[in-house]
């Protein structure tokens, strides 16, 4: 989770990702940010999020995104 928070913080230093839970709904991160984030996650955490998982519910908060990463890792295991 810490690694994810670091990546998110680098993307938008002004956002409090530990509490924010409407990242997509409130337009805090947009489609360009989502792809930059996915590229960073692939590079730093070795997880490739596919297009079918790019839905607001998975990207609205750091917690939801972390749950998605965990799920992908479990499926790959």
């Amino acid at each position: 989770m810490e690694e994810l928070l670091e990546i998110l913080q680098e993307l938008h230093p002004e956002v409090d990702f530990e509490t924010e839970d409407k990242l997509i709904d409130d337009g805090i991160i947009d489609s360009f940010d989502v792809i930059t984030l996915i590229t960073e996650l692939q590079e730093n955490m070795g997880v490739l999020i596919s297009a079918k998982d790019i839905i607001p519910e998975n990207f609205n908060s750091a917690k939801a995104l972390f749950a998605l990463i965990e799920r992908i890792r479990e499926e790959e295991a």
Binding site: S31, V34, I35, I38, T39, Q42, E43, L48, S50, A51
Partner: peptide, 19 residues
């Protein structure tokens, strides 16, 4: 965005080139 932008940008080919 849903059916072109996301699938292309997250495709293995594009991500591997980026890597």
């Amino acid at each position: 965005r849903t059916y072109v932008f996301y699938p292309v940008s997250t495709s293995k080919t594009i991500q591997n080139i980026s890597k």
